[in-house]
Design a protein around this nucleic acid. Structure first.
Lengths: 326, 326
DNA sequence: CTGAAAGCGCTTACAG
DNA sequence: CTGAAAGCGCTTACAG
């Protein structure tokens, strides 16, 4: 390459890295040689010389397929746009600890930063290892969060409040709430936003019935059973059910159907996530859209731009999606 | 590191790479130093010196979330087990060509091999660029396939034949088939397996009605419309519908429900994929399970083991999953 | 505006 | 069984 263009390696490097201090003639010569030879910089060599890997790492998410695919989609796109490459490390939950997967896997790649997703973003041994190595990280919806790091959140409250108002305006007055697992930080937020909004609209304490299922088994099945306790319990039957997420809501739909109830006539059902399934079930699910890919994109942007310290908590908007179930 | 263990860098390298020719005493000394310092090999340096990147690349799939998540899960796991790291390159379909994404993105990483998924595995410019660079690749369910490369297929025929027998044994005699897009190689295979098996069991040509929808819009919607043509068309109403995939089958379920038909009493409905949604819809979908993660694992194994030339086409078993819809 | 020198942290190919 | 030398393909820090 350098020989063909009759310049030093350093000058090739200047052209590749868009250094301004190259004469137009030299630049043209180098660019011609690049085109001719199909030269592409060697990332490993650059990485070694510059002490920068141009790599961002991620652990394989343990979430729904929809969440997983959206995170990858957003992260991969943003990495490309910012000149990074995305490295995915397996983590199968239960077998090894995350920090082991880091120490004996990802660490050798010298990723510049990691994109951390629940529950991995709350794993203290991992965070300590990253701090020790000077590897930056951005957490998505972490449960615990101190001000050293940046965290991105979906603004669940806003979307859930819209949903609560929508149900109220539709005439619903008796509400059932299928709460999420207490380990999930969003669970409490969604619950509070839902009940507070309804109380603000005039609902009394007896108008809202909580179901707090054990989160064992498939989420849809948990949702179905929770809905059963709500719809056939001793209290007056709810005319609206809000489930922690779409899968639980789909379970609730199944339950209502089993009981011969009309949706949304007898009982309105709503979820959270706007996952792909929300459009596939019958009736199509009214839900709150969570911008998962955009959250991942934002996280990579934060990493790439090294945004200033004041941006420690970033909230991404959610919004109500009205379909047929509510 | 080398200084602490009082050995040369070469000897550290020997211990790290499990070279047998190291005396037990030296080995113990080096291992103690590794533990003490938390040393981990630098992948970039190793890569540069050894002319091996230890990287396997993948383009972001454009398939269902379920397919996408399963592929990642399998690929990430197998990469770890074989000492590779997985690099994901964005490819958004429509914007740039894949080969451009390779040339200006992935290529600089010097991936040793690529895992190629439809439709990218049939992109000739990409394959030519990979051949030119000596980058190996394994294709998953490619449409075209020559003997230079290894391809992994799901054995669709087998699972679909089981399904056809199941429907027949259940007493179904009039069949509707929602065919997949002709661009999808599996579409014809599933269709042939279904019709051939039924004919073998005694079905006549008039007993099988084909729907060949245009595959525009969401798959569930296409499936719903296709089912409508099948269930309300001039021919005798089918008592069983097999859809190309689960999403189309879910659309068909929606349609049957709209028409007030009982599933599976009036019409049995079955899909293909055993996607996550199959268990969430009502009634739960009878379908053919496709081992997506296992296919990805197999692909990485082939890459890692550089299997001999006779293994050019590998078929992974599929199997019938009987649930409630058929 | 351009290049020579040194070095990033490993491995390869040898030598002993 | 162990190490010295050279080099992988870049960038950094400097000199001119």
């Amino acid at each position: 390459m350098a020989a063909i263009a009759r310049v030093s390696p350093k000058t090739v490097s200047r052209v590749i890295n868009r250094d301004a201090n190259v004469s137009p003639a030299t630049k043209a010569r180098v660019e011609a040689a690049i085109l001719e030879t199909g030269y592409v910089v060697n990332l490993a060599a650059r990485s070694l010389a510059a002490s920068r890997s141009y790599l961002i790492g991620m652990f394989m998410p343990n979430m729904s397929s929809h969440y997983c695919a959206e995170i990858f989609r957003g992260a991969a796109r943003a990495c490309r746009q910012h000149g990074f490459h995305l490295v995915v490390e397996e983590y199968d939950f239960g077998a090894a600890t995350v920090v082991d997967r880091y120490e004996y896997g990802l660490r050798s790649t010298r990723c510049e930063a990691l994109l951390l997703i629940p529950p991995v973003c709350d794993d203290m041994p991992l965070l300590e290892a990253l701090d020790r190595d000077g590897v930056r990280y951005v957490c998505i919806s972490p449960g615990r969060h101190d001000d050293r790091t940046t965290a991105i959140f979906a603004d669940d409250s806003q979307g859930v409040a819209s949903l609560a108002r929508h149900l109220w305006n539709r005439g619903c007055r008796r509400f059932g709430l299928i709460a999420g697992p207490s380990s999930h930080a969003s669970a409490a937020i969604r619950e509070t936003a839902f009940t507070d909004t309804l109380k603000g609209l005039g609902a009394g304490p007896d108008d809202i019935t909580m179901a707090r299922p054990d989160w064992n088994g498939t989420i849809a099945e948990v949702g179905r059973k929770a809905a059963l306790s709500l719809l056939s319990g001793p209290q007056a039957r709810p005319d609206a059910i809000f489930a922690f997420n779409d899968e639980a809501a789909i379970g609730a739909i199944t339950c209502a159907r089993d009981l011969g109830l009309n949706i949304p006539g007898d009982v309105a059902i709503a979820g959270f996530d706007d996952s792909y399934m929300a459009q596939l079930v019958w009736p199509q699910l009214t839900t709150v859209h969570q911008p998962i890919a955009e959250i991942a994109i934002k996280a990579i942007q934060v990493i790439a731009e090294e945004q200033p310290a004041e941006h420690r908590r970033i909230y991404m908007p959610t919004h109500l999606v009205v379909r047929d179930s509510a």
